[in-house]
Design a protein around this nucleic acid. Structure first.
Lengths: 225, 225
DNA sequence: GAGGATATGCGTACGACGTAAGTGTGTCAA
DNA sequence: TTGACACACTTACGTCGTACGCATATCCTC
């Protein structure tokens, strides 16, 4: 009788949050292609059209998914050296991308503007601040951000995507004419048995080293002026 | 009368090649979402189902699109120094990705195995050979390939994708609480007016410098042994 | 309580999509 | 001429996102 004591109904009230969570669950367990309005609705025990009371359309739902995931980024702390902090931040970002393998596809497929909520901007702010503390000029901070972000996302894409499988299939299957692709044949065995983590660190080192050299060059420039 | 002289009919015969070309045309002009069997069929003046005489299914068509585009990669030549060759190759790869803005999405969305035709493997072979000539160990050749490939693809993704728009919208629109994101606010003006080419070169330099340092370190290591 | 306003879930329907299956028509070999 | 074959077309099914309208549950005002 008391309307405030019992739930509004037997079932729990649907909220935008619950819809987004369901979408993430479906995406991570069954892939982005399975994230349909009908499937997500089933996940929360509702019909497809009911979702539209909480999201404007499917793009809005996907936007919400992006923001929620971005907000789950784990910031590294406890590192004094910016190099260590940069590496930890990069690993954390990679971990997030790996935890949601279709996130990059989602980024690529979203039609509307990318999320600009405070939550999803915090990782950007963190990275920028870090590069600034490393001693880069503001202009180079932006460029370093692009370079790092690009590398990490690109690497994870190549790692998780089809590139690796292609080469496993192609190389292990040995369908390639060796004489036409001698280098490919020579190094192919490194593809399968290379530790992905190690590969990631390799590129990370490359970028850090380059950045250190840049910082050093800049400081000598400014001394020479 | 002579059967070989005239075409089989008024219209030109449909071929797999023509179908793939039409798909690329549609993709580049109207986006990947518009690449539907019906739309591609219309492009070649035919009904949708007729395409299935030349491609096994839609994935097969997209696979063909990938291979054809990969085969259009322009190899740099005339560079003696591997650094110059690496940069030229990277720029060429970026140019190809820019010429087909939805290619990366296509890579990400393809279900079947990635293309492993000789044509589409030649760029890989080229890059591997280059790194090898730079003096890297076979193991590091593979890793450098991943690092470089990752960087380029990631950069183009961030460049063409929504990231740039997001920041333009968000920064120019100044919707961000400045006190919460001080660094973001401080460097934001560099986002819009930074030359993308310059940004690309920046990251490229980072990777090259890192690689040079790696090569140098390796060679001193081997001397020390 | 009574009754209207609002919020929210459901059912139906439409035009896209990929494609399975069957039908017709042109070309060529015999 | 005739049979086989290649290939384009037609129809149809189950999926998708979602516009539209209806039903009900909750809340506000009297």
């Amino acid at each position: 009788m008391d309307p405030s004591a019992t739930a509004t109904k037997d079932r729990e009230r649907l909220t935008r949050e619950r819809v987004i969570d369901a979408a993430i669950t479906v995406m991570d367990s069954e892939g982005l292609d399975s994230v349909t309005m009908r499937r997500v609705a089933r996940e929360v025990g509702v019909e497809a059209m009911s979702l539209y009371n909480h999201v404007h359309d499917k793009d809005d739902l996907l936007q919400g998914v992006c923001e929620r995931i971005m907000a789950s980024y784990e910031f590294p702390d406890g590192y004094d050296d910016w190099v260590d902090r940069a590496k930890a931040g990069a690993r954390s970002w990679r971990r997030l991308l790996q935890a949601h393998p279709d996130l990059l596809r989602l980024f690529a497929e979203m039609h509307g503007p990318a999320p600009s909520s405070p939550e999803s901007l915090r990782p950007t702010e963190f990275a920028l601040t870090m590069f600034r503390e490393a001693g880069l000029a503001d202009r180079d901070v932006v460029q370093a951000f692009h370079a790092f972000g690009g590398y990490i996302q690109g690497f994870v894409m190549m790692e998780a995507g089809s590139i690796k499988e292609r080469h496993e299939d192609a190389f292990i299957g040995a369908e390639i004419p060796e004489e036409a692709f001698p280098t490919l044949a020579a190094v192919s065995h490194h593809w399968a048995d290379c530790d992905p983590d190690e590969q990631f660190e390799f590129g990370l080192d490359l970028m850090i080293r380059g950045l250190q050299a840049k910082v050093a060059a800049d400081s000598t420039d400014s001394l020479a002026e």
